[in-house]
Structures are given as C-alpha cells and as structure tokens.
Write a protein that binds this DNA or RNA. Structure first.
Length: 146
DNA sequence: GCCAACGTTGGC
DNA sequence: GCCAACGTTGGC
C-alpha cells in the first residue's frame, strides 16, 4: 500500500491513536478492488512513494475490512467524488494498524534487481497502482532484503 | 520540474 | 464503442 510520506508517512501512522488509520482516498478501481479482497489480520507493506527514497518502510495489519469511504461524500475533502453517493457508494477503505518499521528503507531499486520479484507488480513498467497484491513468495523475499 | 505511462472523460 | 484530450502518478 503506497502513500506519499509528505501526505501520510509510516511515522504519522505510529503517531495515531492506537496506531490505527483509515486508509481513505483510494480513487482507482483496480486498487479499490484489491482493497476489498483484504481480510482482517492480513498484513501489508507500507510503501513510501513520490519522495527522496521511494521504497518499502514497514509492515501494517488490516484491522477492519473494506467499508464505505465517506470522504467521497465530503465536498470539502480532497477526495470528494460527486459520483459516489450514499445509495450507491463507489469508494471503499480499510483500517490499518502499525506493526513494524524497518530499520531502513527497502528501496525500489533493490526490489527491481531481485530476480525473484520480477513478477511483482510494483517493479513492473508503468506501475501506478497505489494498492498491489503480494504473493507469499514475494513477501518472504522482500523480508529477506532487510 | 520533467515526462512517460496510465486512467478517465466526453464528443461523436 | 472509438479515441483524442486531458488529468494524475511517480520515478528520476
């Protein structure tokens, strides 16, 4: 799960009450669909994007599976979407909880040079999805990079 | 700040 | 349903 650290970083998550945060603002259908497949207690990597050192910075846990993202109803929110209505909500979010911050960032470059991760969507050309699936093999491989 | 690679919109 | 125009993402 990606976030721009100048908007919301892993340190921001650590600072939250109970270290829990609703992951709102996902406005891409594919990313939304991946999020709706998540289950309680699933783990996810926290990825810092669009910053000096882009890469995976830690782990979080899904503590609430997908529910309606009501920031889409809020005209004052940057995530407002007039096409999402109470009757027919379009966007969803999950709640995540902090689990672990790595001692260092696993950079995108490091991920790219790992042959085992060649199929990982994050390292593929033109990847722009903010939420991506990780296989168990990929998960293990990434953890070994620390 | 540039720009390639996408996704979305909307006219037709 | 096509596709050009436009907007966004995100690495560099």
């Amino acid at each position: 799960m990606k976030s721009e650290p100048n908007v919301f970083s892993i340190d921001d998550l650590i600072a939250r009450p109970n270290q829990i945060e609703p992951w709102e603002g996902v406005r891409n259908y594919q990313a939304r669909n991946f999020m709706r497949e998540m289950e309680c207690d699933d783990l996810a990597f926290f990825y810092h994007s669009n910053c000096k050192e882009a890469g995976i910075v830690g782990i979080m846990k899904i503590v609430k599976s997908a529910y309606v993202d009501d920031s889409a109803f809020d005209e004052k929110s940057p995530y407002f979407d007039s096409k999402s209505t109470l009757e027919k909500p379009r966007w969803w979010r999950v709640d995540v909880q902090f689990v672990r911050k790595f001692e260092r960032t696993i950079t995108l470059h490091e991920l790219k040079i790992q042959s085992e991760l060649a199929d990982f969507q994050l390292v593929q050309r033109g990847n722009r999805l903010s939420i991506l699936p990780v296989t168990e093999t990929q998960w293990e491989c990434i953890l070994l990079q620390i």
